[in-house]
């Protein structure tokens, strides 16, 4: 069964499955240990390289298991982890498991334009006001009508020495918003890139060896970005295109990496995101098989009661009109052929002398005849008339 069409072949809303969008993606870390090599970390030795790609490799497939930052001798202790997802995803959650004590301050950001600009999704801190100038997140979500980046408690250190930073898109979103019908929620969950900024190690402020600030580092594994490939309800899966880029397998007459526009000939109504109630498929223009291109006209769409706004371009086979549904001047409909037949329109073929013009009746094919002339193409004298020698009055009354 095709998830994008029902048993009757009618389009229906379809979405790709929930995946870890970060799995296998390259992670850009602002700091990674091992250059230069030290006792525990050597970037040139696969057995001792704690590279950032360990954050997104399949669980249990890599050794060592954890990424480690370089040793941080003094403030600022900011380390940035950036994961380009390759295309837009609709986020559900983000999590990062720490292999050592989790930071006491971190920020989670997203980009919707492949890293050109960033907006925060949430903050995590033991001192929200001091670190981010924000109050701790209210228990019942944001106070405003839309989603917003709230400041949550910093991840708790676990008995094994690690910790988990976890964020759900619902955490920053008011209750009751519905993804189908809330453009602000759709915007909130959409991301092409995820960035985690670790800003304060757990032990910062401790001193050892007579007041000298100890060097600190971050160590983490399993960066997960749970989400669905964003296809706006018009695809059930994403595939790699010929250039190796992740892209939606668009259905419903849509195209683009996110199925966010109608295919060129499918512009009989404006593009819309599919919802659970309505697939909002892009409809092909009705051109009776005589045109390959069409354009959308909003005025016609409104006048039609929001049903059809497509206008066929370059009607072929001697047809004309918004839907290539009548014959162009100098041609008439052959009643023996269907409108979609390539030869549905026949040339008028009006007689150069007997006809008063070259344009015939588009329905009957009758040419306009001069006085005393008859026939569909005006090629004979009417009864009671005979041919003259004058091309101006080719038929005269019989004496």
């Amino acid at each position: 069964a095709d998830p994008c069409y029902d048993e009757a072949g009618e389009p229906r809303c379809c979405v790709p499955g929930l995946v870890n969008a970060a799995l296998g993606r390259e992670v850009l870390a602002s700091s990674t240990c091992g250059s230069p090599a030290n006792r525990v970390c050597d970037s040139s030795d696969p057995q001792r390289a704690h590279s950032a790609d360990l954050l997104t490799s399949a669980p249990g497939t890599a050794s060592p298991l954890c990424w480690r930052s370089d040793l941080l001798q003094r403030a600022p202790f900011n380390i940035t982890l950036t994961v380009p997802l390759g295309k837009a995803f609709e986020l559900v959650f983000v999590s990062l498991r720490f292999c050592s004590a989790p930071p006491t301050s971190a920020a989670l950001l997203k980009s919707q334009d492949h890293g050109r600009s960033w907006v925060p999704l949430g903050f995590f801190s033991s001192s929200c006001g001091l670190d981010y100038g924000r109050p701790p997140a209210p228990a019942d979500g944001p106070a405003g009508p839309g989603p917003e980046a709230l400041c949550f408690p910093a991840p708790q250190a676990q008995p094994d020495g690690g910790g988990l930073l976890a964020f759900s898109v619902q955490d920053g979103s008011p209750q009751g918003l519905d993804l189908d019908n809330s453009p602000v929620l759709q915007d909130w969950v959409t991301a092409t890139d995820i960035r985690i900024v670790l800003t304060r190690p757990a032990a910062q402020g401790d001193t050892r060896d007579g007041g000298v600030t100890a060097p600190y580092s971050y160590s983490a594994a399993e960066l997960q970005v749970g989400g669905r490939c964003k296809c706006n309800g018009h695809a059930s899966r994403c595939l790699l295109d010929t250039q190796g880029r992740l892209t939606c397998d668009c259905q419903h007459g849509t195209e683009g990496p996110d199925c966010s526009r109608c295919k060129p000939f499918y512009c009989d109504r404006p593009w819309q995101r599919a919802t659970g109630q309505e697939a909002h498929a892009c409809l092909a223009c009705s051109c009776n098989g005589h045109a390959r291109r069409c354009r959308f006209n909003m005025e016609l769409y409104r006048l039609s009661g929001r049903r059809s706004g497509g206008v066929c371009l370059n009607c072929r086979h001697n047809t004309a009109g918004r839907h290539c549904h009548y014959c162009r001047e100098g041609f008439y409909r052959d009643p023996g052929r269907t409108l979609s037949d390539r030869r549905a329109c026949r040339a008028c073929d009006c007689h150069p002398v007997g006809a008063a013009g070259k344009t015939c009746n588009q329905t009957t094919g009758q040419c306009p005849c001069k006085d005393g002339v008859t026939g569909l193409t005006c090629n004979r004298c009417a009864p009671g008339f005979q041919q003259s020698r004058s091309p101006v009055a080719p038929c005269v009354k019989t004496l």
């Binding site: 150069p352 002339v373 004979r380 020698r389």
Partner: peptide, 23 residues
């Protein structure tokens, strides 16, 4: 009664040269 089709050869184009269709 079916009349014959117009015979182009019978027309005199002397005064209507500019109207004469190309054959």
């Amino acid at each position: 009664e079916v009349m014959p089709t117009l015979d182009m050869a019978l027309f005199d184009w002397t005064d209507y040269e500019d109207l004469k269709p190309e054959v």
